[in-house]
Every structure is written in C-alpha cells, then in structure tokens.
Design a binder for these strands. Sequence first.
DNA 1: CGCCCTGTTGATACGATTCAAATATCGTGG
DNA 2: CCACGATATTTGAATCGTATCAACAGGGCG
Lengths: 244, 244
Amino acid sequence: MGGVPEGNGKVKRVDVGEAWTGVADCRQCMIRDAVLFAGLKEEDFSHFHRPIDQLVYHSGGRIYDSGDKAETLFTIRSGLVKLTQYLLDGTARIVRLLRKIDLFGLEVMIDDEYSHTATALRDTEVCRLPVDVVRRLSHANPLLFNELMSRWHQAMGTADRWITEFSTGSARDRVARLLLWLSEKEEDERCELFSCEDLGALLGLTTETASRTIAELKRKGFISEPRPNQFLCDTPNLRRLVGM
Amino acid sequence: MGGVPEGNGKVKRVDVGEAWTGVADCRQCMIRDAVLFAGLKEEDFSHFHRPIDQLVYHSGGRIYDSGDKAETLFTIRSGLVKLTQYLLDGTARIVRLLRKIDLFGLEVMIDDEYSHTATALRDTEVCRLPVDVVRRLSHANPLLFNELMSRWHQAMGTADRWITEFSTGSARDRVARLLLWLSEKEEDERCELFSCEDLGALLGLTTETASRTIAELKRKGFISEPRPNQFLCDTPNLRRLVGM
DNA sequence: CGCCCTGTTGATACGATTCAAATATCGTGG
DNA sequence: CCACGATATTTGAATCGTATCAACAGGGCG
C-alpha cells in the first residue's frame, strides 16, 4: 500500500512485469468508496477465501495477453492501462484506456479467457480480484450485482465514445478530443501523453500524423509543454475547436 | 405473432412508428431458446405482472430517442435496428447494429434514459420488456442474471469490433468487413444493405465514398447484385481482401 | 407531371500516409 | 560521468485516398 512510483511516462525498464506489493485489506482501502466492493457488508468479507493481491506494473508492463486463461479481474488504484485488440492483418488498435478506480478484465465473469491485451502505460498499481470471489459475492449481494451492471454500462459508454470521438473526424479533432478526455479527470488542465505510436493506435492515425498534430496544436497555442510530457491544455479553446 | 413484412430496404412509409401486434406468450415463444428468458422456470412467469408487448416498427421507424425516459428494454424477433449517437457538432455515428435475438436498451437496467437513438432499418418485430420485470427476475434467477451479464459481454465485443473493423483502415476494407459481418449470420452469402447515408454513418465515411466503394467492389467481382439491394458476396475473396 | 430524395459520377482540393532522413532521447556499458 | 548505440520523435517531400462541391439520373409520391 506504499507510495506510487511517479509515472512520468518516460520510465522504461527491462524488468517489466509485475511486483507483488502486499495483500489488500479491502476493509481499510483508501479508495473503497469508489471501488467495486463499496457496497459490501462486514459479513461479506468472510467469503474472501483467498487474499486480494496488490501489484505494481511498470510502464510498458504486460498485465495479460488476449487469449490468456482468465481467473482474475483487476481494479486500478493508480496509473494508466491500455487495452489493445489486434486485427488479423496485424494492425493494433487501442480500444480502451483505464484509470484509477476503473475495472478491467470484466469478461472473465463470462468467458474463460481475456479478450484484449492489457498493458500498463505508466507505472500502475492494481488489485487483483479472483473471479470466483466476485461471482459468489455478486449472487449473494444485490449491491455488488448492481455495481457490476453499472460497470458494464460504464464500459459500454466508453466504448461508444471511442467510436464517436476517437474514430471520427480529422486528426486534429481526434487529438483535441483525446486531450480533453485526458484532462477531464484531472484537477487542473494538465495531462501526460504517451508514445506517438500509442497515440496513433488509439486514434486510428500513423505515428507521424500524431506527432505533427501535437506539434500543430502546440504552435497554435492550444497546448503548451512546460516540462517534457507535461501538457497544459487550453480546454475552452480546445472545446471550441471540436465544437463542444 | 403473424408474418414479418418483407424488409427489402426500399420500403418507405409515412406511417413510421410502432404497431402493436399482440401480447407475447414467452412460454410458447418460437425463439425462446435463444432469448433472454431462456433460463426461466415455470414459476418465474408468475412474476410477469404486466404483459410483454410485441410490436412492429416499419423501416425508418424511430423506436426511441437518446435521452428519452426509459422503462423498457427490447429484444428483436426479426429485422434490423441501428443505434445512433450524435456528436455535439451534429455529426451522427451509428455505433451498433442489432439483429434477431439481440437485446437493446439494456442501459435502462442502470440508467433512467436511453443513451442512443434506436431506429428500425427494415421492418422489425420486437418484444418490449418492462425493466422492473427484468430487474426483479434477475435478482431471483441466477440463470437470468448470467444471461444478462453475457449480453453485456456480447455488446462489448460488438462495440470493440466496431472500433477495430469498422473504424480502421481504408474505405474498401471497412466496406468489405461490413459485408462480411452482414453475411456472417445469414445461411447463404446474401445480404441486404441500407442507405448510403447509413453506410457512411456506420463506417465513418461520406455517402459518396460509400457509394463509390460499393461500385468498385461490384466492378471487381467481389459482390454482385442479382436483384436490387440483394447482394451476393464472394466471401472467400472478400476475406482475403481484408487479410482475414 | 413535376418535385424531392437518394444514389451515382466527375473534377478538384485537402489531408493523411508513406518513405526517407535528421534529430532528440534513453539506457547501457566503458 | 560521458560516450555510444538503440529507439522514438520530428520534419520534409511526394503520393495516395477521401472529402468536397457540383451536376445528373432514377424512383416514389403528391
């Protein structure tokens, strides 16, 4: 439950992969109000036959691969995770981006394998929830059941935004919408970006176009970069730019 | 429960909107094995305090609008329905296409308004399920609970395909993937298309490009049109074209 | 019959991709 | 700590594909 390594997006290590950082005490969880288990009653915790592991993945670390045998879902305590899907011709497309409090790997409730490849885009803290625990609890506890439904609903909403906002319109519009999306959940209007390759895979553009577009927005004053990979967004003007 | 009007995509009537065609007897439903209520036991049907209405919407008929107060979800008995989402600048994007057996309006389980605009693309038969019935049953019946989860999961999978297949690559690839998707669930390799405007809104293209691309595929022999709006797909070659 | 809507086709302009090269950055080992 | 090699980013120029604008054909409907 220690400090989160600063994810500045530039961290790249060879020892990618996970590091176990303890057993979660959900009863004491700092973000518990916001997470899946918010509605649990004291007695429910007795159903936890296995401990909930907490893990840290370094930037670039693979959390799971599409097709991997699935036994756990994940909730994010901090960081950023991408879900990637591959077309049969090899091209990759990032279909979702997940942040603090978000749940991913939900498909294990239904399926026995993951449907995407999940990768940490910054250093990321997650809790790993065994699917059988969640299944058992969701049958017993109507609140958790509703919370699960609600998560599915949320995920659908995000997927729809992906289609309408990040796959429609000019490169400039898409990048602008992404910047707005990224700064949406930040207190200030700051945001960090990730590699141009990822930007491209997310917006359906080439890395070159992504780079050029960022440069153009910087030149025109819509964003500034006081420190490397720390972008300040002129959100009102960005919003105007995309007609929001 | 009568015959389904032939939806040839050319039918356009002024009297769009719904027509009540009877009360569904779910116990006797012909497609019951495949629908939401497949797992219900005899006793469960006693929970139906309100009848399940069956309706027909004509091609072009609006089923609900984004933001409408929501009290029912729908299941399709026959036909084709599009879900549209609008960007704030007015451009529309079709985010899903629903067919026989598909469920839509699932968001009412969580939300009190619909998140898309639903429109029949051909004459379409639906059953209208009151959300309170489904809610009550889903708490009582674990099979229905699972079925609901499974539907969310399915919907997510479709949304992801929308991103990777219908919003990525050249116009030709997108149209080809759509043709394959449409003929996927047909016995033969026949499929009907809809207006070029809808094609564009679905694939993120202009109507002109949609039209040109269809023409090109026809010229090159990937598809033929023996009767107006009855397309025969050379699926093996289409598949090769998009690298599947 | 003429109007409106949809689909089709053509010419042109714009924007994104592609290929190539230069530059900047990171991680490594000397 | 610095220098190096590998990797990512940036920029340029040419090409390709799609959007745009405009004109026209056909069908349904008043």
